[in-house]
Amino acid sequence: MVYRVDVLLFDEFETLDVFGPVEILGSLPDVFKLNFISANGGLVESSQNVRVDTDLYKSENDIEKILLVPGGIGTREKVDDNNFINLIESISNQSKYVISICTGSALLAKTGILNGKRATTNKRAFKWVTEQGKDVLWVKEARWVKDDNIYTSSGVSAGIDMTLGFIADLIGKEKALEISQRIEYFWNENSEYDPFSKMYE
């Protein structure tokens, strides 16, 4: 199975939210085809001034798609951008899997696709994110959460753990461990282990 990974960028996204998971998914080029997209195409700039050239979303029916939504300071503005929220909802409906990192789950919550589902987010921004979706079953203590075809992770670096968990679910734990060893990363395999959940109370 080959998947196109639509990485949805917006101004002031968080760099590691994107490139942690991209490092992992990009190590399996026969399985995952990375595709950087944005609402208008062209150059998009992260909070750290990293500029990425993006395309417009293409709805192709002959390939399975994964939507990846990062967080970052830009989410504060984007939650009130109805066109952007509608775009996320539309792409989500055409995707086999939906993955969010950090405050990206606030954007998913706004679409309504998380209603009645378990999800998590950045613990430092937990109060703000959870206000974006009152009908979401927010999990306070979790490194990442999987509910059906939707994966949501805690803050920034948690996206790396979640993506390895996603690889383990999709391809097998051996492959996830192999990738983590190759990038010399200590994978936090336990999705429920979350020391940060108590830090910001």
Rank of each mutant, 00 (worst) to 15 (best):
R51T: 03
G72I: 05
S27P: 13
A39L: 15
Q94P: 05
E89F: 12
G41I: 08
N35T: 14
N86A: 06
Q48R: 12
L68S: 04
V69I: 12
I24Q: 02
Y57L: 07
V98S: 03
Y57I: 10
D53Q: 10
T75C: 14
I24T: 05
I99V: 15
V31A: 03
I88C: 04
V44M: 02
P29T: 11
I101T: 14
F19Q: 06
N83D: 14
V22I: 14
E23N: 13
F84H: 08
R76H: 08
L25M: 12
P29Q: 11
E64Q: 10
P29D: 08
P21Y: 02
G72A: 07
K58M: 06
K58I: 12
S90D: 09
N83Q: 11
G20N: 11
P21W: 01
R76L: 15
I88P: 00
L43W: 07
N49Q: 14
L68M: 10
L43G: 09
A39C: 04
V22N: 00
F84V: 08
V79S: 00
K65E: 03
E89Y: 07
S95L: 09
R76W: 10
L28A: 09
F84Q: 03
E23Y: 05
R76S: 11
N82Y: 11
G41P: 02
N83P: 07
D80M: 09
A39V: 04
S95C: 15
K96S: 12
G42I: 12
L25Q: 02
N61D: 14
K65V: 08
V52F: 05
G26Q: 04
V52S: 03
I85M: 02
G72N: 09
Y97G: 08
P70H: 04
S95Q: 08
N49R: 13
S47C: 07
E23D: 14
K96H: 07
E60D: 15
I37Y: 01
S46D: 01
V98P: 00
Y97L: 11
N93I: 04
I63W: 13
G20C: 06
V22G: 00
V69Y: 00
K78Y: 10
L25F: 12
L43F: 15
I37G: 00
Y97D: 04
C102I: 14
V98N: 01
N83Y: 10
V18Y: 01
N40C: 13
N49P: 10
Y57D: 07
L87Y: 07
D30I: 11
D81S: 08
S59F: 06
S92G: 10
K58C: 08
I99S: 00
L43Y: 10
D53E: 14
K65H: 05
N93K: 14
F32Q: 02
D81V: 14
S38W: 01
K58G: 05
R51P: 05
E23K: 03
P21V: 05
K33E: 15
G41E: 03
K65N: 12
G20M: 14
L68G: 03
D62W: 04
S59K: 10
N86P: 05
D53W: 10
D81K: 15
G41K: 07
N82T: 14
